[in-house]
């Protein structure tokens, strides 16, 4: 873990800033917006979530823009395990994935048996993607073995479901730690590595995502296995989403520019994408009331 090359903070932030200056216009912008919509994990993770709320969200996932049938569906709906059955009903057969956070999300501070039971329940209820959190406490105290073993166990509990491992990069403190946690998760069997829960003050940032993209790129070069990346939290605008797509393309490459390998964990992002999409097709902005709030 400590044999991985270091990450220079100034350098990685400068690179992210440089990638942010790419000017994506006209046809490229239209392609980017549709791709970003297809990459959204439409998310609600509130204590106040109800079956009514998540059903509405699932309906939106299927048809994000009721006024425009050419608008593609999103990649997945992401909810708490208790909400999985309600969402499963709506999504069944649609091709839109059903992701559930598990393993004592968001803190991860629970015994392993509880985490595994949480995971199995969600899968049994119909989730085909599990977003787990790592034990940041164990990671920060240097007990990498503990973190690794937990991921291996959760991966096993997932069965056929895809496992996304949330590193909670806002709590890891350094880019070196982000790189180490990324490799640890990939070695342990993660199908995706994800930045954040969205429940701590610092969520996804472009430099953090850049470091994770370098990790999946180098991991595939070394092992032949491709792992996906999911930034989550704080990405709210089309402009931001395009910066991430540029970073994906110019860091990991074309192979990652698909919902199978890159996702946005977001909620309000979708409406901004829809608004920009409408602007590009019609030439003018529609007001926010022309897009559904769910």
């Amino acid at each position: 873990m400590h044999g991985l090359p270091g990450v220079d903070k100034v350098g990685v932030e400068a690179r992210a800033a440089a990638l942010s200056t790419r000017s994506i216009k006209t046809t490229s912008k239209a392609a980017a917006i549709d791709l970003a919509i297809r990459m959204v994990d439409l998310t609600t993770l509130e204590g106040a979530d109800t079956t009514g709320k998540v059903r509405a969200l699932a309906a939106k996932a299927l048809r994000p823009d009721p006024a425009d049938p050419s608008c593609p569906p999103v990649a997945a709906v992401c909810v708490y395990p208790a909400m999985v059955p309600a969402v499963a009903e709506v999504l069944r057969g649609s091709g839109v994935h059903l992701a559930s956070v598990a393993t004592a999300f968001p803190s991860g501070q629970a015994p392993l048996e509880v985490k595994l039971a949480d995971t199995r329940d969600a899968v049994a209820a119909g989730a085909d993607e599990i977003d787990m959190v790592i034990s940041r406490g164990a990671f920060l105290s240097g007990d990498y073995r503990h973190v690794y073993d937990e991921i291996v166990a959760v991966k096993e509990a997932c069965g056929p479901a895809h496992l996304k491992v949330i590193l909670e990069t806002g709590e890891l403190g350094t880019y070196d730690n982000v790189r180490r946690a990324s490799w640890l998760a990939m070695w342990a069997g993660a199908d995706f590595i994800k930045t954040s829960t969205g429940k701590v003050p610092v969520a996804a940032t472009l430099p953090v995502t850049l470091v994770m993209l370098e990790a999946v790129r180098d991991f595939r070069a070394q092992t032949g296995r491709q792992v996906g990346v999911k930034p989550a939290g704080g990405i709210r605008t089309t402009k931001d989403a395009i910066k991430y797509l540029v970073t994906v393309a110019e860091t990991a490459g074309d192979d990652w520019l698909s919902p199978d390998w890159f996702r946005f964990g977001a909620s309000s992002l979708l409406n901004d994408l829809l608004m920009q999409r409408t602007k590009l097709t019609t030439g003018h902005y529609a007001g926010p009331d022309y897009f559904t709030l769910d």
Binding site: S23, I24, K25, S28, A31, A32, V246, A249, E250, D254
Partner: peptide, 10 residues
């Protein structure tokens, strides 16, 4: 490079 055949932005 898919959408990264960035359209001209002169």
């Amino acid at each position: 490079m898919s959408f990264l055949d960035y359209a001209p932005a002169p």
